[in-house]
């Protein structure tokens, strides 16, 4: 299953600003994790809103699934950047229970699924009776993630998923997303500013600038173009920046790695 965006443009009808805030053509392939990065106002959130069918493109088409069977929005899970518009229920239990009932889960299955999903995001059953408004930002984000995973969508869209998360939570989220991709074959698209997280998790990167695609491709190829990224005030992940610095100073190509531990091992090997 893939998402094909053909000549998609978007103009906000409620704004006086006449230029498109988005104008692109791109294909997202199945069983991959895509990262969408770019400076503020480049159209990352707008793109996710168009893919989640929250907004309708002014022109162009977004085809989700095959031409014969266009996938419906109930197979797409979208985690908003602004969590004010993420939840239907007041408490965690009400939120998850409503969604499971909406997707025809039986009562016995519901309780099991709720426990499973809370464990996946690193929370326990004590959160069930908590009012969502009283949770911390990081906890709300986890509940938001749980609320989209609970009905097992085929496509997962995450807007700034690491906002408010501790380093430990980020690592757990990384593991979860990799498992969702490898074991459950989900298509995951992450938009955000946390370059290091996106580099660690994603396979392909799409860099947006002023609503258009500035760079796209495999993450190593994209982040290798450090100078081009600097032109739009984007930084590369620290791991890649360090590798580039080592190469610049010593002409030793230690290569690109996803994990800092792997990089340290490589550096040790060269030094030894």
């Amino acid at each position: 299953m893939e998402i094909k965006c053909k000549n998609v443009t978007y103009q906000d009808p409620l704004l006086d600003y006449q230029d498109s805030i988005l104008d692109l053509t791109y294909t997202f392939h199945n069983n991959q994790v895509y990262g969408i990065i770019g400076p503020s106002g480049s159209g990352k959130t707008t793109l996710l809103e168009l893919l989640s069918k929250e907004k309708i493109p002014s022109n162009g088409t977004i085809q989700i699934g095959s031409e014969k069977k266009n996938i419906s929005s109930r197979n797409i899970g979208y985690l908003h950047q602004n969590l004010d518009y993420q939840f239907i229920g007041l408490t965690v239990e009400e939120e998850l229970d409503y969604l499971l009932e909406s997707f025809s889960y039986r009562l016995k299955e519901k309780n099991k699924r709720i426990k499973e999903v809370l464990m996946m995001v690193g929370l326990n059953n004590d959160y069930l009776n908590r009012n969502i408004e009283t949770l911390s930002h990081g906890e709300k984000r986890k509940i938001g993630l749980a609320s989209i995973l609970v009905y097992n969508p085929k496509i997962i869209l995450l807007d700034e998923p690491t906002l408010g998360l501790s380093p430990k939570d980020k690592k757990e989220l990384m593991r979860l997303l990799k498992r969702l991709k490898n074991k459950y074959h989900k298509l995951i698209i992450i938009a955000g500013h946390d370059i290091d997280f996106i580099h660690a998790v994603c396979d392909s990167i799409c860099v947006l600038d002023q609503g258009t695609i500035y760079l796209e491709g495999n993450k190593y190829d994209v982040f290798a173009k450090e100078e081009q990224l600097k032109q739009i005030h984007m930084k590369v992940p620290q791991i890649i920046s360090f590798s580039n610095l080592v190469y610049k100073r010593t002409k030793i190509n230690i290569g690109y790695r996803d994990d800092i531990n792997d990089l340290i091992k490589d550096v040790y090997r060269y030094v030894k």
Binding site: S73, Y78, D84, Y85, Q86, I88, L99, S102
Partner: peptide, 13 residues
């Protein structure tokens, strides 16, 4: 409006 929008987007059955 916002709650209805989310309900519509996450309509299962």
């Amino acid at each position: 409006y916002h709650i209805k929008k989310i309900m519509k987007l996450r309509k299962g059955k």
